[in-house]
Design a protein around this nucleic acid. Structure first.
Lengths: 193, 193
DNA sequence: ATTGAAACCAAGCAAGCGCTAGGTAATTAA
DNA sequence: TTAATTACCTAGCGCTTGCTTGGTTTCAAT
């Protein structure tokens, strides 16, 4: 049988899988590639996971939980709407481009590789994250930092942020903090003194 | 041999392939699925294309050309920076959500499935499209519609627009035109009279 | 009517895929 | 020290994949 639940070894394997899924995509990552990256033989993977998709689910679940944790941590530091918006932007970009970015990127790029059942399970986490964001955006609109429909604003902002995985390379000069601030300015047309 | 170049039959096949690639992704679309959708036997596809990837290249090339054509057409109608920005937003959304959207969506979602050689060939088309957008954005900044770094602004905007393929369904009430205008307002914090 | 090219089919091959079964080693608990 | 549990390996099965080969049909131009 499988299912040791939350062992350390499992987390290790999931973290390595996240890297491969990010670099090669879920479909093109074979169980033999996963095995060789983890130092296992291909069959041994199925002692820890019942099938390949369960690995993806574990990766995405970890990515989403980390995102929620990060945005809560970052926004807890401040209480003005403008600073909270900036902190959310920074937190989101941090999970996408900082340490341990792999899982969050995979949770974005490989969502459609999930089965319907897996989506049902993970969608609650995603909803929680988006609901948290929605409040940040709502407050920013109330404070006249943003304008227009609240729901669409959230979708615009998260879309633009997520798309940064296609082009942003932190090692090319611009830091994550700087990127976040640029983002904030373009969105709000304002500075923070 | 293959290579009939630009026959009508080929265009037909490419258009059907675009739909499948959009709905199922390139990797998960098998040549047998393509064959049955086109009414051919699986081997016969390779009379028209030398391999599966050549089909993807043809789809993406078509999608990019159509995008360029559309943004040029839409912006040709107007000359003020605000109207040109709105027209570009509308044109982009139109290629993503209007008729014949499949190829443009595939050109966005399946870019990483291309081989390096294929990218070299297609990147010129993508660069041309992005350069056209960059001018629109530059002019909008000069006209004080947008603020901040020009290059980043273009990336933010196109990212947010592209991300709409993840959530926007034109049949759910909001039209493409309305979406474009909402977009314009959120970006510029302005209306058009 | 004949020819030649283009469009297609029938059959299947080689390689790679996810995954399984049955065993062995390592670790922990009594 | 023994027994149980967990971790891993060996070997390979059954299936699907992209693609090939060699032949047949279709059809326009002669």
């Amino acid at each position: 049988m499988t299912i040791p639940k939350q062992s350390n070894r499992r987390k290790e394997l999931v973290s390595i899988a996240a890297r491969l899924f990010k670099d090669t995509s879920f479909d093109r990552t074979t169980v033999r590639m996963l095995a060789s990256a983890t130092g296992l033989k291909s069959g041994s993977l199925f002692h820890h996971f019942k099938d390949k998709e369960e690995i993806l689910v574990a990766v995405i679940e970890g990515g989403l939980k980390k995102s929620i944790e990060t945005i809560k941590r970052e926004t807890a530091k401040v209480d003005q709407p403008n600073l909270r918006l900036l902190a959310s932007i920074y937190g989101h970009l941090e999970t996408l481009h900082g340490e341990n970015k792999d899982a969050h990127i995979v949770s974005i790029t490989e969502w459609k590789s999930l089965s319907e059942d897996s989506k049902d399970h993970l969608i609650k986490l995603r909803d929680e994250y988006e609901a948290y964001w929605q409040k940040i955006v709502d407050d920013a609109i109330t404070a006249n930092l943003l304008t227009g429909d609240p729901h669409l604003n959230r979708l615009f902002i998260l879309g633009a942020l997520n798309w940064s995985i296609q082009w942003f390379k932190p090692e090319q000069g611009l830091s994550i903090k700087q990127l976040a601030y640029n983002f904030y300015q373009s969105l709000t047309h304002q500075s923070i003194d």
